[in-house]
Simulated assay, not measured.
Amino acid sequence: MLFLGYDRMIEFCGEDMAILVRSASLTKYSEIACAAGIDPVRALREVGLDPSCLHSPDLRIPELSLARVFEASAKPSACPSLGVRIGEAWRLSDFGAVSLFLQHQPTLRQVLAQIERYRHLLSDSVAIRVDESQDVVVLHVVLVTGRPHPGREIVELTVGVLFSLVRAMLGPQYEPRGVHFAHAAPDSLRVYRRFFGPKVDFDSGFDGIVITRRELDRPNPLADSRLAYYAQELLALQPRPGHDSIADDVRRALHILVPNGQGAIEPVSRRLGVAPRTLQRQLEQTGNSFSSLVNEVRASLALRYLSHRHFSVSDVADLVGFSEISAFSRWFSAEFGKPPSRWRSDCLDTADRSRSCKGH
C-alpha cells in the first residue's frame, strides 16, 4: 500500500460514510476499454459491480468500486490516461437528469452553483470550490473518498468532466489559463494537451482549472429562463436517493472549508443552512460531535497533502488548521504514531520504490 497509515485512515473516514456516484462514467469507460483490449465486463465483475452499469448511466455505485476498476485498467501498457480520455468523451447530456437545467443557466457561475444544489443526483464524492482573486478564478476540485488519496485516474476524470462542462458553456474551442494536477506528470502528455490545451501543470498545489472572472460570468447565449424553469420542475419529480446523514454533510463541507481556514462550526453551519446550535444537536443525536469530525477531516487532508512533495510540512500544518507547526506535529504523532516528517519520508520512499519496480 503506497500510503502508510491507510488502515488508520479507514477508522476515520471509510466505513460509515457511504460514498456513491452515478455510473455514467462506466458507460464511457466501456468503449475506451474495448478499444484498448480490456474486457469491461470482467473488469466490473472483479470488483463486484454488475455489468449492467456499462449500459445504465443513472445507477448509483460505490465510488471505491469505480476507482478500483479504473486503477486496474489504467496500466501504462493497457490504457494510459484513462481518466482524461473519459473526461474528453464527456458531454453535457452525460450529467443525466440535470443536463437540460444546466444548459439553460445564464452563466457558468450559476451552472457551478446548481451542480452543488443537485449533487444528490450526481455524486456524493465531488465538490467544486470557486476561489476568486481579482480577475483570476480557480475552480478547485475537492474529492471526498474515504481514502488518503482518491487515485490518479479518479482525479483526472473529475477534472476532465469539469473541463468538459466549462467548454459546454464557453465554447468547444475554449482554452483555460491553466489546468493543474497535484500529482506527478505521466510519461506522455499527448492526450492531456490534445484535450486541455498546452497549459497543463503537474506537481501543482491543487487539482483544478484556472479561468477568468469574465469567463465565469459570461452570459450564456443559449440560456432560456422558461426552459430552465421547466427543467427545474422536472427535477422536482426525480426520486431523491436516501439522504446523506448530517455527519456526511459536515464532512463534505469541512473538506472544502478547512483548507481555507474555515474549519469552525459557524462557516460550516452557514454552508449547510442551519444554526450552529441546531447542527451540534443534530450531530449529537447521531452519536457524533463536530470536533471529532473536524479531527477526522484534518487527518484525511493531512495524509493527502503530505503525500505530495509540493507541500512543506509547514504548508500542511497551515492547510489543516494549525497555526504552529509544533502543535501540528504533536497532533499528527498522536494520531499516526510518527511525526509528519517521518511519515512523509516513509511514504515517498515507498512511492519511489514502487516506481522503480515498475520501471524494471
Score class of each variant (00 low, 15 high):
P239N: 12
V258M: 04
L254T: 03
F290R: 10
Q285G: 14
N295H: 15
G261A: 11
G287N: 13
V274H: 03
S269L: 05
A299D: 06
L257H: 12
T278F: 00
R252P: 00
Q232N: 15
P241V: 00
S300N: 15
F290Q: 07
F290H: 10
L293P: 10
L279H: 02
L283H: 11
P259W: 05
I246H: 03
L234W: 10
T278A: 08
D244A: 14
T278I: 01
L254S: 00
I265D: 13
G263Q: 04
S291A: 15
G261Q: 10
P267N: 10
D248N: 09
P239F: 06
R277S: 07
P239L: 05
Y229H: 14
T286R: 13
L234T: 06
Y229C: 11
L235V: 01
A231G: 12
R252W: 01
R270E: 14
D244E: 15
P239E: 09
R277E: 09
H243R: 11
I256T: 09
R252I: 00
Q232S: 10
V258E: 02
A253K: 00
P259N: 09
A253P: 03
H255D: 00
S269H: 08
E296R: 15
A228S: 13
R270P: 03
R271P: 02
E266T: 10
A228W: 07
